[in-house]
Write a protein that binds this DNA or RNA. Structure first.
Lengths: 338, 338
DNA sequence: GCGCACTGTCGATGCGTATCGACAACTTCC
DNA sequence: GGAAGTTGTCGATACGCATCGACAGTGCGC
């Protein structure tokens, strides 16, 4: 193993000088700097992470706590992880992955063993037992998702209330006086994730404003059979010009399919608005009018906040809960106003 | 921060005794051990990871290198990651995630900075530029996937040749004399992943044995439109009792759907064998006869080998390439023998 | 009663880095 | 021309733990 002492010997300087060249925390003459950098390159020196963490009290690692419930909506997870890893690397940090079946133990381990400088927690339930534990750690924590009580922790999430509002606005403006919301998967509802309620609240508020009725079909497993049942029920309830909202991202495609199977064409016979990523909305035929759910934006913002919290010099963000505004994009599954 | 010295003070012993209690590398009297353990609990002591790594030359971290190409077949990735994380935790290790867009640099960083004790690499291409770099590291590396030249590294993968054989065997035995293979997604083919060829080789061999013809429809993007095109072509080529093989896991459902859309019912009109996980094969209606592709088995085996490589005392596995045997499960999409 | 092996504990040291204080060599300014 | 500041480098130390050698204390056999 090559150490900074080896570099020092080759460059003809002391070990501390090598350290200062790398950190830039003291001024070094151009000539010395060059000699050191040359030696570093020649020896392909890389600092030892453990030693550095020990001496500097910083690990350059971000802990990422995710839940891998088998069968859960893990499909949407990867873009989050990818974005988080990318942002971390951009700041010369790495990502340590902790699966949440460890529960709070994973959190205390991350902080107690000094495995990381900060923690990102995903998949937050409304009344999440890990929140108080997370709040008591001595490292900054950011939540992706909003619990009922964040205990002073910073949170980032999509503004689901706004998403509900946007979807209902769009349908009501197009003349639908009857709107059916096809709800979330049973396990999401059961786990009491906050966004279910938040979306519904926004949708209800918008419906009130427009004076239209909202009916809820729920819960819906995101598969063929579930979608077919839901569509049957939705069509039975709605009359002419039914407006359908699917805030359950993985169910959007199956619902679309189930409608087509029955000869009901969204954009001709009914309107369909999905809550999903733009990419998946564009991929299907016909392209789905959607309220965007962009994991990358949310993750990016979360990492911004996290690094600001880590930066001792900078001032910290005051707003605890930050909601990312979604965007409605009109595509081929919604009817125009009559 | 609580240190082992604090524990020692509370327990009335020396710091080294605390260390020996934790590691068990020297015998400690029952009474002393209890005092130390009590002190540890009372102070909720956890060892500092950096200091431990520095002193012991072991990080207790496994590096996981995965590719997050946007749009790639990342769906199947999570079970791998989850299993790897679980196996690591079972041996008191953590997982450091490195996304492969860093290329070889990620590997040299993991090893050079002593960030981890061993590395798992996924998504291996036939002629993968990272292989020689990985082989030159001073930490054990295991590949999930088989390159053309593994440069002495251990590999684990599904036995795709056997999978091809099993699928064709099944169809030929059921009396199909014309078998259509609906191939992989364009990006997989383009990236030259080994298993495409391996599967085909096995399928061809079995077809030869049985004296049946094989036709290839390829490449097929795993979506509605791609599946429809592929099915149209497959049905045009095959005659009565067409046997269809879909070795492209994410395309299995769309292909099934496309068949049903045309009124062609697998299990009644044609036979369909998919290469996919048992879970997804069972989830659809009708349930798909499949050759199992179990990421969990592969990952588990990979981690077994990795920990054996890490265990200095134990002997190392001699076989470099280890192929996990797939299993065919007959379900509702295949015709019985006439 | 004496040597001997064994058990349980301690003090000292080193792992590789960051950082603090010291200090020599220069500059600048009255 | 001397005081005061600035720049660039070094030596020493601390970070928290694992591990090695040393060494009291104990039980054993002869």
């Amino acid at each position: 193993m090559v150490t900074s002492r080896d570099v020092a010997r080759v460059a003809g300087v002391s070990q501390s000088t090598v350290s200062y060249v790398m950190s830039g925390r003291r001024s070094i003459s151009a000539e010395t700097r060059k000699r050191v950098l040359d030696a570093i390159e020649q020896l392909t020196y890389q600092p030892n992470a453990g030693a550095r963490a020990l001496a500097s009290q910083r690990t350059q690692v971000i802990g990422l706590v995710v839940r891998f419930r088998p069968g859960a909506d893990t499909t949407g997870l990867l873009p989050f992880i990818e974005t988080i890893a990318g942002c971390a690397r951009a700041e010369d940090h790495d990502v340590l992955l902790v699966t949440a079946d460890e529960g709070s133990a994973g959190l205390t381990r991350l902080a107690g063993r000094t495995l990381c400088d900060a923690i990102v927690m995903m998949d937050i339930e409304a009344d999440d037992a890990r929140i108080p534990v997370a709040a008591s750690l001595r490292v900054p924590v950011i939540l992706i998702g909003v619990p009922d009580d964040s205990a002073g922790l910073h949170c980032v999430d999509v503004d689901f209330a706004e998403a509900g509002r946007l979807a209902v606005d769009e349908l009501a403006s197009a003349g639908h006086d009857r709107i059916v919301v096809i709800g979330h998967a049973p396990d999401v509802v059961e786990r009491d994730i906050n966004f279910v309620r938040r979306f519904q609240r926004g949708a209800d508020a918008a419906a009130d404003e427009h004076g239209v009725a909202i009916e809820l079909v729920s819960p819906v497993p995101p598969n063929r059979a579930g979608a077919e049942d839901a569509v049957r029920e939705a069509l039975a309830r709605g009359g002419e010009r039914t407006g359908i909202v699917v805030p359950n991202s993985p169910a959007v495609q199956p619902v679309l399919q189930a409608l087509l199977d029955r000869g009901v064409v969204p954009g001709r016979d009914v309107s369909l608005v999905g809550l999903c990523t733009d990419a998946s909305a564009e991929a299907s035929t016909p392209a789905v009018t959607n309220v965007s759910l962009e994991p990358r934006d949310v993750s990016r913002r979360a990492m911004e906040i996290l690094f600001r919290l880590l930066d001792r010099s900078g001032e910290r963000p005051t707003e605890l809960v930050e909601l990312i505004r979604p965007r409605l994009t009109r595509r081929d599954t919604t009817l125009p106003a009559p």
